[in-house]
Amino acid sequence: MSTTAGASLRPLAQSLKALTLRPIQRRAVTDYASLRDNLPRKVGMFGQKKVFHSPQADEPRRHIKIHAPLPAPASKTPIESLTSLQLATLDPTGAKQKMFSRHNPDSVKVGDILQVRRKNGEQPFAGVVINIRRRGVDSAFLLRGQVTRIGVEVWFKLYSPLIEGIDLVQRTEKRKRRAKLFYLRKPEHDFGSVANIVGQYMRQRAILRGEGPKNGQQGQRGGKTGKKGGKKN
C-alpha cells in the first residue's frame, strides 16, 4: 500500500486490524464465456437498450452452405506444358534440345564455332557462339562472324522452322570462363574470319560422306585445323 505525500497516515491500530483480522475471501472469478453467451449477438455496441438491437440478434447463426470448388486447371505450369507441346512439332527428334541442353556434357558451349544453314536460300552463316539464351521454345544463340571482312553478329532462334540445320564446326579448345563472350567485340580479342575453319570442316565432311571436295569450298584453304568433327542435325 503506497501513500502519497501529504496524505495523512491511517492510525496504526486500524492498519493492523486490516492486516490481521480480515478473513481471506475467495476472489470473484468472472466467467467470461457465459457472459459472452448471454449477451445478445448482433448489437451495435455493448450496453445498448434492447430496442436498438437488430431483429435477428437473438437468433442462432445461420449455417452457410459452401459449394465445392471446381477442379483446378490441368497444368500449374502452363508455359512448360505449352513448350513441350510446341517442341513436339518444332523439334520432333529432340536433337536441337540435346544440342543445347545444360545436362548434356557434349552440348554447344560459348566459344564453339557453329554454322547455320537456312531454308530461305540465304548463304549459311558461320561464327563463334558468344551468347546462348535459354528460354524454352524461344531459345536463341548469338553468332559472331564476318561478312565481307566486317564483323557481323546474328541472333538465331534455335527452334525456328526457318533453320535447316546447325553444324558444330569446331569446339572451343578451353572452356570459356564467361557465359557471354562480349569481349570478342574488342579488336584485340576479335576472332576474325572463321571461313578457313568452316571450309576445312566442309571438305572433311564431304570426304567422310564420299562426295569429294566441292568447287565452292576449294577457294578457302589453309587455316587452323578443325579439332573435332561436326554434328549434323
Binding site: 518444332l90 531454308k119 524461344d138 532462334k157 527452334y159 525456328s160
Partner: peptide
C-alpha cells in the same frame, strides 16, 4: 498472366506472345 513465349506459324514466322491462363472462371 503466366508469362511470355514465342509462337511459330505455319510459315515459320515467329510472334512474341503472352500466355494467359483461366482458372475456374464463373
Amino acid at each position: 498472366k503466366t508469362g511470355m513465349t514465342a509462337i511459330y506459324d505455319e510459315n515459320g514466322v515467329r510472334t512474341a506472345a503472352t500466355v494467359l491462363q483461366l482458372d475456374r472462371v464463373q
